[in-house]
Amino acid sequence: MQASEKEELFPKGSDKTYSLMGIVEGEPLQVERGPDNMVMTYPHLVVRELLLFLVVFIVILGVSMVFNAPLEEPANALHSTNPAKAPWYFVGIQELVSYSAFLGGIVAPGVIVLSLLLLPYLDRNPRGVGVWFSGTRKFGIVMFSLFVIVMIVLILIGEFLRGPNWNIYWPWL
């Protein structure tokens, strides 16, 4: 009876090039490395995640002990600051608005947000996944880098080079 059951579990086939010889207790050959380069989430990933939280928390706490958040005089609707600047992440948009209110303030942000939302549906080329700066998608990388650099440059100009009446002023003069 038992012999026939074993036959069914491990049938002898002519096209089979392997067979189960026996099950042995012990560590697998790839210790701490499962099949397909998989590892246990706990402890490997969880410990790294908790360590990263400690680092982030300590850095934020450290910066907060040394540098105080800005606080100016109480708000006064009758006395405007000159220049009045948006928060730094919108200063790039404000810089564009100074060239053209409609194009810089509405069209440009709208185009940026729409292109970001549609990006994965416009770029259907499946190559390069999981590789930093894959050479198979040079066009996309150049275009995105241009966008990032232009945003950063606009923010830097708006934040550091714009003085009263939104005129250019050089901080070192």
Partner: peptide
């Protein structure tokens, strides 16, 4: 950004929300 209610907050939000008025 507006909540501290200082000059920085007030005028940044004034400038920021003025951009919205350019929506056709």
């Amino acid at each position: 950004y507006l909540l501290p209610w200082d000059q920085l907050a007030f005028w940044a939000i004034t400038v920021g929300t003025n951009i919205v008025t350019y929506v056709p």
